[in-house]
Design a binder for these strands. Structure first.
Lengths: 170, 170
DNA sequence: CCTAGATTGGCAGTATACTGTCAATCTACA
DNA sequence: TGTAGATTGACAGTATACTGCCAATCTAGG
């Protein structure tokens, strides 16, 4: 019995692969974000970190990484850069000498407030080529897929972790 | 007339933003790819480059970047690593001393053939949590969106560029 | 022919991402 | 109480990505 013939190797197979499309779309999304926000000198990651610190003042780096689902190693340099720009400050925790608590500075809170319209323009532009109904469908499916694949990523999203520093048990 | 009140800044707004979802999904996709393909020591980018060189033997680095829509600067180091693993070789072109032509080695062709089942498992796993009909819907919308946003990325996909080295005019 | 502009590949610099390791520190259990 | 194991932040090493610059080279126009 002859074995199945191997399918031909084509670029079209690459172009249609989910992984390739996710990569391309992410690159396009970053490109649009940077274009709309170039006046603010903030990257998408730095923006997400600022929002999380704004929402959870006094969070530490490890929990921050869980809240935005970014790698903890990467986050170290992100925090350094935000600190160098005077958008955040780090204060050692009194009860636990390992932990450094993160807070927005006045400038950080200011730039966060100012950049929001540009961020919203960027997010809208990413989906603009689709019809409104299709935008909604795509976002709904993507939210589902990211959520159902949460554990597949090295840094699963743990939104509730952010509350632990307020004394709630894990 | 009072101005509209600023909307509150929440993490939920970040979690629902297209850019955030594209980033998360890309990270998950890379994670799944690396897991399925860990026996082969090939990254997603390296895999795409191998396929493109297989499909277009004798392509140069600049056209390769257009065919897979990856940044040319980045591609330099990708090519170096593939060359260090003896999967590709570079030959200077005789007519144009600037150009170095890319070819798969015997090992490169071999690993490409061997890795395909693992790549297909990875691609399937990325979408597995969705119902089959939803997978199709998502892929259709994503192909559309990437195509319609093609010019928004720094390196737009130019699939037809790959044919130019065969003598066809651009 | 000869030069202005384009192309090619290489490099430096910055910013994510991830793996793995480490010391300092804390916690919980024996 | 003492210590094994967990946690936190830091670091080294690798691999994308992108911006901008550069020298070598090619091409087209005058």
């Amino acid at each position: 019995m002859p074995s199945k013939p191997a399918p031909p190797i084509t670029m079209d197979a690459v172009y249609a692969a989910p992984g390739y499309l996710f990569r391309r779309m992410q690159q396009i999304a970053v490109s649009i974000f940077m274009e709309e926000c170039k006046a603010f000198d903030l990257t998408p990651v730095q923006y997400a970190a600022l929002v999380a610190i704004h929402t959870h003042p006094g969070i530490d780096a490890t929990r921050l990484s869980a809240v935005i689902a970014f790698d903890r190693s990467t986050l170290g340099s992100v925090i350094e850069r935000l600190q160098a720009k005077d958008y955040i400050e780090r204060k050692p925790a009194t009860e636990d000498k390992r932990i450094k608590l993160l807070y927005l500075t006045r400038q950080g809170a200011g730039i966060l407030k100012d950049i929001i319209p540009a961020v919203e323009r960027a997010q809208a532009r990413m989906l603009e080529p689709l019809k409104p109904a299709d935008r909604k469908t795509l976002m709904t499916l993507l939210v589902q897929l990211v959520d159902l694949n949460n554990e597949a990523s090295r840094v699963p999203l743990r939104a509730e972790d952010a509350l632990e520093h307020l004394g709630k048990a894990g």
